[in-house]
Amino acid sequence: MITAVTTFRLPRPFTREEARSIFRSTAPLYRGVQGLFRKTYVLSEDGMTAGGIYFWNSRGEAEALYTDAWRARAREKYGADPAIAYFESPVVVDNVAEQILADA
């Protein structure tokens, strides 16, 4: 499993309400994306950094999303280019499903 963390250093602080509005406008785009099993939107306390934490089945599926078109849409919404960091996630604790998941 892979966790991808995207961050955007914003050109100005976003309020929680502004961020929530943008996040809600883009959230439907992530429903049904191949290999993505969860996305969490994030906003820093000072409102200067926004981003997402994505939980993927594989890095290849993650990389398939982060295309030039995705980057352009993100730049339009946030006024900043995204940074993407990938992390191996060999074990995930899911308290909602009451499971501990481990990759093969």
Rank of each mutant, 00 (worst) to 15 (best):
N95S: 10
V42G: 03
I100G: 07
E17S: 09
E45T: 12
A80N: 07
A4Y: 04
A74D: 02
Y86E: 05
G79Q: 02
L65Y: 07
A97R: 14
V93L: 08
V92C: 09
R75V: 13
A83S: 12
F87K: 08
L36V: 03
Y86K: 01
R20G: 10
V93D: 13
Y86L: 02
A27D: 11
A85L: 07
I53P: 01
Q99N: 11
R24V: 14
G52L: 01
A102G: 07
I84C: 00
A74N: 00
V91M: 08
T67H: 05
T40F: 12
V92P: 01
F14C: 05
D94V: 07
Q99S: 12
D81I: 13
M1S: 04
E17W: 09
A104Q: 07
D103C: 04
A69F: 03
G35A: 10
A64N: 09
A80L: 00
R59V: 07
A69Q: 15
A27Y: 07
F14M: 06
L36N: 03
V91T: 10
K39I: 12
G79F: 12
T40H: 10
S58I: 15
F37H: 11
P82A: 15
L36S: 09
F14Q: 00
K77H: 15
Y66W: 15
S44N: 08
D103I: 04
A83L: 15
L36F: 10
T40Y: 01
R24N: 12
A27T: 08
A27I: 00
L29W: 14
I22C: 04
M1D: 13
A83C: 14
P28A: 13
K39E: 06
G51K: 01
L101V: 15
V93A: 08
D46N: 04
A69V: 15
V33T: 08
Y41K: 01
V96F: 10
V5H: 02
A19W: 12
G52H: 05
P82G: 12
A104S: 15
A72D: 10
A85E: 05
L43N: 04
F8P: 00
R20Q: 11
I53Y: 03
